[in-house]
């Protein structure tokens, strides 16, 4: 294996891991506040299609990204209204959001299938990008890769050092107690859910504007679901999400590694790998079920309605 191939593999790993980082970070914040949003896949698809349509119509990728973020938040608001205000079953509501988002995105994008788009161009960071190997691997990405890393730092800081992070955790651990000390549980949960929607919308934009600049039905290919597993894998820690996302990114592009070797496998079989890897991870996690249970937010999935 020559150095160019290794460089390309690492480069592709980071690109593939980026949407997972965004979705998983958003979902982690959401789950920390006690809300399990299984609608990631739906929000992701809607973000992707809205971003793509906005880019085609306006020709401006920057505006398109904001549209995608906004679309993700709107979807999250819908979920939030049901799951937070109406105290609906979060599992069923999340599934509904995914089914609805899949349908909605297919409908909205039906006139945009097969249209080409000049996607996001890499933004080479001066000087650093000239370094051998790591220059290409780390510093020649499109802007959203750096945005994702910035957001990672933000979320990391949020739960490590900020009061707000502490409040979110309080709401997710014990909403009654949080309410008793004057935290507005519903408001904070809405904020967390909307943040999750924005992150997933952004991930959608990344898919349809940067990763593969095009729209096709169901193009997210289960990334929303994989990200959900990733949050569990990371035991609700931002730094482990980063690591996990790149590991999954690597698993998804393993066919690049095998290309040209005698282990070449049909593409559809290779395509199973991220899903099989997710199952393996879930199994492996369960060997440590106690730890998973301890690190999970206590009130996850439990609706809370203040007495009124």
């Amino acid at each position: 294996m020559d150095i160019d191939l290794i460089t390309n593999i690492l480069y592709a790993t980071i690109r593939t891991g980026t949407p997972l980082i965004l979705i998983a970070l958003g979902e982690m914040v959401c789950e920390k506040s006690g809300v399990l949003n299984l609608g990631q896949e739906g929000m992701l698809l809607v973000g992707a299609v809205i971003g793509f349509i906005a880019a085609t119509v306006t020709g401006n990728l920057f505006i398109a990204v904001w549209f995608a973020i906004f679309a993700g938040m709107l979807m999250a608001l819908l979920f939030g209204f049901l799951a937070i205000s109406l105290a609906s079953n979060q599992v069923a509501t999340g599934l509904a959001l995914t089914i609805f988002g899949t349908g909605l995105s297919a409908f909205l994008g039906s006139n945009y299938v097969g249209i080409g788009l000049d996607g996001m161009q890499p933004l080479a960071i001066p000087l650093l990008s000239d370094l051998p190997v790591i220059g290409k691997v780390l510093f020649q990405h499109d802007p959203l890769v750096y945005v994702a890393l910035t957001l990672f730092a933000l979320v990391f800081w949020l739960f490590k050092y900020s009061r707000l992070g502490l409040k979110i955790r309080a709401v997710g651990e014990n909403p009654e107690a949080a309410n008793a000390i004057g935290i507005n549980v519903q408001l904070l949960r809405y904020a967390a859910v909307l943040f999750g929607g924005a992150m997933t919308g952004l991930a959608g934009a990344y898919l349809s504007l940067a990763y593969t600049p095009m729209w096709s039905e169901g193009m997210s290919a289960g990334r929303g679901w994989i990200a959900l597993a990733l949050v569990v894998f990371a035991s609700w820690k931002a730094e482990r999400i980063l690591l996990g996302a790149y590991l999954f990114g690597f698993a998804s592009i393993l066919h690049l590694v095998l290309q040209g070797t005698r282990f070449e496998v049909p593409p559809n079989i290779m395509a199973m790998l991220p899903y099989v890897a997710t199952i393996v991870v879930l199994v492996w996690l369960s060997s440590d079920a106690v730890k998973t249970r301890l690190s999970a937010p206590k009130s996850i999935g439990r609706p809370y309605r203040p007495m009124s």
Binding site: L78, F81, L82, L86, S88, N89, A92, T93, L95, A96, L97, I99, F100, G101, T102, G103, L104, A106, F107, S110, N111, E217
Partner: peptide, 18 residues
Amino acid sequence: PKSLTGLFQGMLLFFLLA
């Protein structure tokens, strides 16, 4: 577009949960 099917199905489930 035929994909109206999925949209109607999604709406149905959403309204039901609401």
